[in-house]
Design a protein around this nucleic acid. Structure first.
Lengths: 114, 114
DNA sequence: CATCAGTATTCGCTTATGCTTATACAGCAT
DNA sequence: ATGCTGTATAAGCATAAGCGAATACTGATG
């Protein structure tokens, strides 16, 4: 069952969006937006813990949303094609609905009790 | 703090994607893709329960991702502008990464133990 | 081989949130 | 008013999944 299947498509799309639905993963993605980065670079930029970044990157990689290349003992990650465009499409919506989305009361997306 | 703010942007984007990260909500969105629909229409098309659909639509509406119009005792919902484009951008990615995304082992996005 | 830097993995906990069932509310007809 | 249709809300439960801490790999260097 490929992407062609209507019902499977919805399922797969949901999973894709889920990959980007977490604040931490999205900040990692943002860090990769300018080009490939080592894990430790991402850690430095995002302020997340190393295991956390590693987990999220593994998650994104397993889902095929980032590419990975090992050089020596370092591992470089980069976004696959299409991702920047998806982010742009999201930002277009946010121009209009940003305030509302940001204030959405039904979920907090990882914003742990703060 | 508007969409302009870098950190706030990531947060808001995460929430936006979260809105589309659920299988049920996404099937509802898909149902709305062809135009405005009543709640009961969406129920019929998706096979979800009426309270469930109502909840998800309320969620999407509060987040500003769908527009709502009441006519008599019926309520019509439709997608706001930019959403179809976001879905298309997602599909572009899925053409390449669809198989991988669909098989992503780290989460199941609402696919309850089946 | 010993050590260190960079990365990945596991465990356990906590929280978010989707679902079901029951029920309440709103508007129209008789 | 009564009843019916369409929609929304609430309570309670079950589960997904993010996080911190500890630890295991892996490859480079001396």
């Amino acid at each position: 069952m490929s992407v062609e299947s209507p019902s499977g498509l919805v399922e797969t799309r949901a999973q894709l969006f889920h990959g980007f639905s977490d604040r931490s993963r999205l900040s990692i993605v943002e860090a990769l937006r300018e080009g490939e980065r080592r894990v430790s670079d991402v850690v430095a930029v995002t302020g997340l813990t190393q295991p956390n970044v590693s987990m999220h990157l593994a998650c994104l990689w397993e889902c095929g949303l980032v590419a990975r290349e090992k050089r020596g003992r370092e591992v470089y990650y980069r976004l696959i094609e299409g991702v920047p465009e998806l982010l742009s499409a999201a930002d277009v919506i946010l121009v209009v609905a940003g305030e509302t989305v940001g204030a959405c009361p039904r979920y907090r997306v990882g914003r742990r009790a703060a």
